[in-house]
Simulated scan of single mutants.
Amino acid sequence: MSPLASTRPRMLRRFSAPRMPVPVPAGHTRIEVAGLRVERAGRAVLDQIDLRVRAGEVHALVGPNGAGKSTLLAAISGDLPAAAGAIEVDGLPQAAWTPVELAMRRAVLTQRNTLSFPFTVDEVVRMGRAPWAGRPEQEHDDSIVADALQRCDIVQFAARPYPALSGGEQARAALARVLAQQATTLLLDEPTAALDLRHQELVMRIARDRARAGDAVVVVLHDLALAGAYADRVTLLADGRVRAAGPPDAVLTAPLLSEVYRHDVEAVPHPRTGLPLIVPRRDRQESTHVAKEKQ
């Protein structure tokens, strides 16, 4: 067979109509990771990672700095190659999908969302509609963008240049772009890091709402209380491996967190909701000393 003939099926696949995502029941696996290993400079930064991302769930990735949370999200999104293991999206290997087909299935919010050109916020959010260009879904672009702006509380900034916004406002605009993409899986890397308390809760309610609507949501969090309050499932990473995975009350325990974070942690139920509250242990003498120093 000639080299040209051997590449013909791939070329035809590239230019044929994209395979559209289909609705699935809650609990259905959208993304599956098995035996994943990722290396940087010849060193394993992730090893033996197994993970299932299910429709209708918020799945939180937690762990100390350097545990591999963002690296895992980048590998799932296809931005980092795997040295070993497999990643499947909607039942097929990640490489079996075209870039447009992947964009219809997973939307990615990275930690840093910088732009060098003065696009308006509205224009940035519209970038999320790119996978649907030239398709019937494009007719709904205006209403979808307007809804994303409203949900992320940035309607008032729609005409402003994106670079002129504060860090927290840029973070919400970037999230609105991800929502406008209308992918079936959201991959959110520290979406609350630059936000005040009100907007942290807003973002996590958006994640919860998307899961209720049938999407799968993976979110990297440093705030363990947010993970306990909003996640259906938590995966705790440490030193590039899965240390524990399961429901929040099974993973977010004081002994386990104290071991992984190398700091004494208290995990107590909220007196009204019963949701776990996770705080570092501080004795009264240390707290008094800190208060006097601030004075």
Rank of each mutant, 00 (worst) to 15 (best):
R30I: 00
G27D: 04
H289R: 15
R281T: 13
P81Y: 00
M11F: 13
D283N: 15
R198C: 01
G214E: 04
E101I: 12
H263I: 12
M11K: 02
V108Y: 11
A148C: 11
A231C: 07
V217L: 05
V242A: 03
D147M: 09
A244K: 05
E57Y: 02
P23Q: 01
A159I: 08
Q295R: 13
D50Q: 07
P271I: 04
R210L: 12
A96E: 10
K292D: 12
R40D: 05
A103G: 11
R282C: 11
A267Q: 04
D223N: 14
V38R: 05
V219F: 03
V62A: 07
S77L: 03
A194E: 04
Y162T: 03
V203H: 02
R212G: 06
G274P: 10
A216R: 06
P269H: 02
R210H: 02
G128W: 06
R281P: 01
L186M: 13
G63Q: 08
G42F: 11
D232K: 05
T192C: 10
Q182R: 15
R40H: 14
R172Y: 03
A227C: 06
H28L: 00
V217T: 07
E201Y: 14
H140F: 11
L179F: 05
T273S: 15
T71R: 03
R19D: 09
A148Y: 09
M127T: 08
L175G: 01
L275C: 01
G228D: 08
G246Y: 05
A180N: 11
A17Q: 12
R8P: 01
P25Y: 00
R8W: 13
R233A: 01
P271K: 02
L149F: 06
R262S: 09
A180T: 11
T235P: 11
A183D: 02
A148V: 13
A183G: 09
P64G: 02
V108G: 00
E286V: 14
T253D: 00
T288W: 03
P280T: 12
V124G: 05
G78I: 07
R160A: 14
L12M: 12
G228I: 07
L36Y: 08
F119S: 02
W132R: 12
V260Y: 01
P191I: 02
R54C: 15
A216F: 07
L149R: 03
L72Y: 08
F119Q: 03
S70D: 11
Q111P: 12
V45A: 03
L236M: 07
L92K: 13
E139P: 00
G167Q: 06
Y162C: 07
R243K: 09
A130Y: 15
Q181A: 10
G167R: 08
S166C: 10
M104V: 01
T7F: 11
A254Q: 06
R160W: 09
A107K: 08
A96R: 13
L73T: 12
D147W: 13
V260I: 14
A173I: 12
D232Q: 04
H263G: 02
R177E: 04
D122A: 15
R37H: 13
D153S: 08
H199E: 00
A267W: 03
L197S: 03
